[in-house]
C-alpha cells in the first residue's frame, strides 16, 4: 500500500486532531498547503504564532482577548449592572452579533455535564460569585446557557447558588424560532413556548 512521505503523514496526523477534520479533509488540507508553497505556509505559521502569543483569557469575564481586561470589560459605556452568563467565548460573539445587549459578560468555559464528570467546580463559577460579592454594582444576571439538558442543568445550578445574593436572575426565553411554522414545531418546544407566553401590550 502506498504511503505518504513521513513529513506529510505527520502533517495529516496533526490536522486530523482538529475538530471537524476527518482523515480525508486532513489529507486535502495537507496537499493544499504543500501545493500553495512557502509564502502561504509562512503566513499560516505567523498567524498561528501571533494567535498563540497575543490571545489569552480576560481575567474579569474569561472571554478571549488580546488585552486584559478585554475591550468589553473596559468599555465605560457598557451597562455594569448587567452580566450575561454564557458557556463559551463563541456565545459572546453570537449575542454581540444579534445587537441590543449592552451589558457585560461572564464566560463559564463549559457546562455541567455529569456524564462526562464535569461538575460546577470545573467551570468559572467561583469567579462569577466573586464578581457579585459585596459592593458589586450588578443588579441582574442573565443566564444565556444552551437550551438543552446540559445548559439547563448549569442554569439550574447557577440559579440555586445565586438565590441568596440580592441580584435578579433571569433566563433567556425558550420557544419557537422566528420565521418557523407552528404546525412544524415539536411538542417540547411548543409546550415551553406556551409556558413562557407573554401578554401582548
Amino acid at each position: 500500500m502506498p504511503v505518504f512521505p513521513d513529513a506529510i503523514q505527520s502533517l495529516v496526523d496533526e490536522l486530523r486532531k482538529l475538530p471537524g477534520i476527518g482523515p480525508k479533509s486532513a489529507q486535502r488540507l495537507a496537499f493544499h498547503l504543500i501545493v500553495a508553497g512557502k509564502p502561504a505556509i509562512n503566513k499560516l505559521i505567523s498567524s498561528l504564532e501571533e494567535a498563540r502569543d497575543r490571545v489569552g483569557y480576560c481575567s474579569v469575564c474569561g472571554n478571549l482577548t488580546e488585552s486584559d481586561p478585554c475591550p468589553i470589560c473596559q468599555d465605560s459605556k457598557r451597562d455594569r449592572t448587567l452580566i450575561c452568563v454564557v458557556g463559551y467565548p463563541k456565545d459572546v460573539l453570537a449575542i454581540e452579533r444579534a445587537g441590543g445587549y449592552r451589558g457585560l459578560y461572564h464566560v463559564l468555559h463549559g457546562y455541567i455535564e455529569p456524564l462526562k464528570g464535569v461538575g460546577p467546580e470545573d467551570l468559572r463559577t467561583k469567579e462569577l460569585l466573586a464578581r457579585l460579592g459585596p459592593g458589586s454594582p450588578v443588579k441582574e444576571v442573565i443566564l444565556a446557557t444552551n437550551p438543552d439538558v446540559d445548559g439547563e442543568t448549569t442554569a439550574l445550578y447557577l440559579a440555586k447558588v445565586l438565590k441568596p445574593l440580592e441580584v435578579r436572575v433571569t433566563r433567556l426565553a425558550r420557544g419557537l424560532p422566528f420565521g418557523a411554522d407552528l404546525d412544524y414545531a415539536d411538542e417540547v418546544t411548543l409546550a415551553r413556548s406556551l409556558e413562557g407566553r407573554r401578554e401582548v401590550t
Binding site: 455529569p114 439538558v149 439547563e152 439550574l156 445550578y157 415539536d186 411538542e187
Partner: peptide
C-alpha cells in the same frame, strides 16, 4: 419521533438532573 414525556419534573430540578 413521537414524544411520550420529556420528564419536565426532572429537568426543572438540578439534583434530579444529576
Amino acid at each position: 419521533v413521537s414524544l411520550k414525556t420529556s420528564h419536565p419534573g426532572i429537568l426543572s430540578d438540578y439534583a434530579k438532573v444529576v
